[in-house]
Structure formats: C-alpha cells, structure tokens
Design a protein around this nucleic acid. Structure first.
Lengths: 204, 204
DNA sequence: GCAAATTAATGATTTATTCAAG
DNA sequence: CTTGAATAAATCATTAATTTGC
C-alpha cells in the first residue's frame, strides 16, 4: 500500500521486527506500568525522551509510542475503573435484599424507606426517568470509592499525578529533591518544567 | 509563573514579539485560509513543514502553530456550519404556517398530518422525549443541506480534502501534476505520502 | 494439532471539549 | 468574545488471543 521502500525501518535492530505498528515487549510494558504506578500520567516532552531512551534498550521504540501509551493507558484505566465501580455498585444494589442482612456494618445504606416509593410505576414508558433518579440518589456514595481507590497510590514526591488541580496559580515551585522515593531505579525523571505535551515525537 | 529565563523565545526576529502564544499576522491568516479553502484539512507533517516555512516569512511561527490552526479551524468551521444549518432550518420550521404558503415549491414538506399528534403532552416531565422524537423526524432532510454546502468547494485536484474515504485500499496513486489549479502561488504542496499527522511539531 | 474465523486488546488518529491569553 | 493551546473522548485499524471445525 504505502511504499515500503522508505528510509526508516524494516526490521530494526532490537528484537522487534517492525512492519507497521509498535509492538511493545514485556519489559517495555513492565517499565511503563511501573512508571504509571508511580503516578506518571501525562509525561512532559523531556520525560518522554528519557523514558523512550530507557525503553529502547529492550527494542525499537519512538517517543510517540510512549506518548500514545500513556494517553491510551490513562484513558482505559479510567474507563475500566468506571465500569468496575459500576459493576460493583450494581451487584451491590441488585443483591441487596429487601431486608438487610443481620450483621450489616454501618457502611450499609438503608434504602428501604427511600426507595420503595418507586416500586410501582415500572411500565416501559416511564422506566427511564425512575432509573435515572434512582442513580442520582446513590452516586454520592460511589464517589467515595473512587477517592479510596486513588489514595492507594503513594504519589507523594514531585508533581506527579497532579493532573487537574485547578491549574491556575497553583504552581507550587517544586524543584529537584526528587531522587526516587519508592523505586530503586535511578531513572530520575526530572519533571523540571511542565512543557506542553507535544514536542515529544520529534526526537527519537 | 513558569520561569521565563528558558532558552527559546523572548522577542523573536520576525516582527511578532512572542511572550507566550502565537499571534498570527494578517498575511499568515490569509495564506492559511487560502490553503484551507483549497481543501487542506489535516496537513501531513511534510505539508506542515512547508507551510510553516512559508509563513515564517511573515513572522515567527512553529509547526505546532500550523497544526493547531488547522485543527481549530476545521473544528470551528464545522460547528459554525452546523449551527448555521440549524438556524436556517429552525427559522424555516418556525415560520412555516399551519397552512403552507400558496406558491410553495415542491421541496416544502407538509408537516401538518405527521406532527399534530404531539401537540398535547407538553408538561415539564415528558417534554424531552417528545422533542427528541420530533428532531429525529426531521433530521434526514437536513443532511441534504450539508451535502450541498460541502459541494460549494471546488476541491478537484490532488487528494486534498479526502479525509474519510474508507481509508483502506483506496490509495488512488495520485502523484505530481498538482501544480496549483486555482491558486497562483507556487506553494506546491507535495502531499507525497500521507504520514500520520504527527512528527510535525518536532522541527521548527 | 492447526489454520480459518471470531473476538478481544490495544496502538494510532481524529474529533470534541476545555482552558486561558489577549 | 475570539482563538491559540492542551487534554480527553471517541473512533479507526491492526495485532494477539481464542474459538471452532476438521
């Protein structure tokens, strides 16, 4: 289709024969997930450069691959978390008996008084609205789950995982003193400035 | 906020003092819009390079500026077109009397029989559903407007403005013989291959 | 076992939305 | 209010898992 006689790759040195799209090795995935686990979400251009350089030890890779990986991983983790939350919540709702189990901890919410007013009114035309109001009733409690889940990550040091914190006038002036708290590797992501997430794919 | 003492720009040569964001000159806008008018929507990396180089004659500019410009312009043209279409269609609907005007061309649709069944049932709770079904009823006719509007652009020569054409096995092998049909400038966008819209912002 | 056929994952693009400078 | 810049969501496309019939 597209002329294969171009300059760049055909079977790059590493061990990953590259025909079209990047196919990450196990080691590459491991390192990427490790970084993600440490709170890196939208790495800066320099971070991408460093990560790419490191990953190149395991096979051919470009900066844009790293960029795309974080984009996709972040988005798909988010949506997985969302649907997990929903599933958990759903099964909880569906299996909750009309009379709560005897030794229900105080965390259980008692939906008997609040919800039984909607038991009738279940015909096809009006179901939607009822379901919606039903959802809205419980959403506040679900948000706590998200909070707790996010707290599981350490993410104390540098500005990692700051993402959306009003992003105005909250620059916090965090410099150096990063030096790897939970991970023994000396990757030392500098995170000096937060340049827009772009110039990445040039190099490499 | 972010330290201004970095290496790159402060007051670049051109005539456009750059403190933070690109401020396009009139000439730059003109050329960009000209290109857009010729059908360029998502220029390739090479196209962006060439365009940027040309625009640099009028002031400081980077590849990513060109990239963003096309992104934004395309999106905003699209949404403007959409709301224009909606406005046109809306006024047409709203001013259509119950009895059609005497010399109504055959294009007029007669909505008397189809729509008056929804006149009642207009209380606050059920309005939404009725409105939606009402919309769905008329959408098909709107699509024609869009078609016609798009046809207004000439876009005959090279593969410009091909955008979404199944993108599989339809490569059409169009080479050279581009050489400016409606525009006297010898910009000569080569559009040789269609590389992904990325490596752009590296250079420049 | 083993390919062809399906399905699930996921890399790569495009489109929509949001933020913020001027 | 316009629009450059950035991010998130949706979508496309290709590769790997897997199922299935032989």
């Amino acid at each position: 289709m597209n002329d294969n006689t171009s300059v760049d790759m055909l079977t790059t040195s590493g061990g990953t024969p590259v025909g079209s799209r990047w196919n990450p090795t196990k080691e590459q995935i491991d390192l990427l997930e490790s970084l993600y686990g440490q709170g890196i979400r939208t790495p800066s251009a320099e971070q991408i450069q460093q990560i790419t350089g490191r990953l190149r030890a395991f096979g051919h890779i470009e900066g844009k691959n790293v960029f795309y990986w974080f984009q996709n991983h972040k988005a798909r983790q988010r949506q997985k978390e969302k649907q997990d939350k929903f599933a958990y919540f759903n099964q909880f709702l569906l299996r909750t008996p009309v009379f709560p189990p005897p030794n229900c901890p105080n965390g259980c919410f008692n939906r008997r008084e609040t919800c039984d007013s909607t038991v009738h009114n279940m015909d096809a035309t009006s179901t939607h609205c009822q379901v919606k109001s039903n959802m809205e009733y419980v959403v506040p409690d679900v948000r706590q789950f998200k909070q707790e889940t996010l707290e599981l990550f350490p993410l104390h040091p540098t500005g990692l995982l700051q993402e959306k914190t009003t992003s105005s006038s909250a620059n916090h002036d965090h410099q150096s003193s990063v030096t790897t708290t939970c991970c023994p590797t000396d990757l030392e992501i500098s995170a000096a400035d937060h340049p827009p997430v772009f110039n990445f794919l040039c190099g490499n």
